[in-house]
Amino acid sequence: MADKIIMLACSAGMSTSLLVTKMQAAAKKLGRDYNIFATSVSDIDNQLENTHPDVLMLGPQVAYMKGDVKAKTDAAKIPMAVINMQDYGMMAGDKVLAAAEQLLKEG
């Protein structure tokens, strides 16, 4: 079983799929055992209830939903942040993973 669960959420869960692959590679390189997956923002409630991720990273294209999503993650006591737009655009899995790990430490 994975040490931590990192959930990425975007419009449809599709654009973050490549980023998930890059993050998984970065985690493996660091010897981390994380379950990293992408989903759509419409599936956040379901995932919070059933998967119980340790951290949620919101895609920059849905940053306008941050307030609503943060209210849900705060209620579930799960740290959440919007993925840095430049890191997202560059598909910098290592940097997004580092941001998720920082949230886990602060969480």
Rank of each mutant, 00 (worst) to 15 (best):
T73Y: 01
M90W: 09
V69D: 02
A63M: 11
E49D: 12
T73R: 01
G59D: 05
V69N: 01
I78P: 02
N50V: 07
H52W: 06
P60E: 08
G89D: 06
T73M: 00
D87P: 03
T73K: 00
V82M: 08
H52I: 10
M65N: 12
K77N: 12
L58K: 03
N50Q: 14
K70D: 13
V82Q: 01
P53S: 14
N50E: 12
Y88L: 03
M90D: 08
N84C: 10
K70R: 11
K72Q: 12
Q61T: 04
K77T: 04
A81Q: 01
N50P: 00
G67S: 11
L56R: 02
A71I: 08
V62P: 00
A76E: 03
D54T: 10
K66H: 09
I78G: 00
D74N: 13
D87A: 11
V69K: 00
H52C: 12
P53L: 08
D74C: 07
Q61M: 14
V62T: 02
D68R: 10
D74S: 14
P60H: 13
E49A: 12
A71L: 13
I83C: 02
M65K: 06
K66M: 11
A63G: 11
M65A: 11
Y64N: 07
K77A: 10
P79E: 04
A71K: 15
N84L: 08
M90K: 12
G59T: 06
L56M: 12
D87V: 13
V55L: 08
D74Y: 08
K72F: 05
M91Y: 11
G89P: 05
L56C: 08
M80D: 05
D54L: 14
E49H: 10
N50G: 04
M80T: 10
D87N: 13
Q86L: 14
V82N: 04
N84A: 05
A75C: 06
K72N: 02
M57D: 04
K70A: 11
N50M: 12
K77W: 06
M85N: 13
V55W: 05
D87S: 11
Q61G: 03
D54F: 13
M80Q: 08
A76L: 07
P79I: 05
V55K: 02
Q61Y: 09
K70H: 06
D87G: 08
E49F: 09
E49V: 09
K66N: 13
L56V: 15
Y64L: 10
P60T: 07
L58V: 14
K70I: 14
Y88N: 02
M91C: 11
V62N: 01
D68C: 09
M90V: 12
K70Y: 10
P79T: 07
K77H: 13
M90P: 06
P60D: 10
I83S: 02
M80L: 09
T51F: 05
Q61P: 03
Y88S: 02
V55Q: 01
T51E: 09
M65I: 10
Y64S: 04
T73A: 07
M57L: 15
A76P: 00
I83L: 06
T73N: 03
A76N: 06
I78E: 00
K77D: 14
A71C: 08
M85D: 13
Q86R: 12
V55N: 02
N84Y: 10
V55M: 07
M57Y: 03
M91R: 11
G89Q: 03
I78Y: 01
Y88T: 01
M90T: 11
A71V: 13
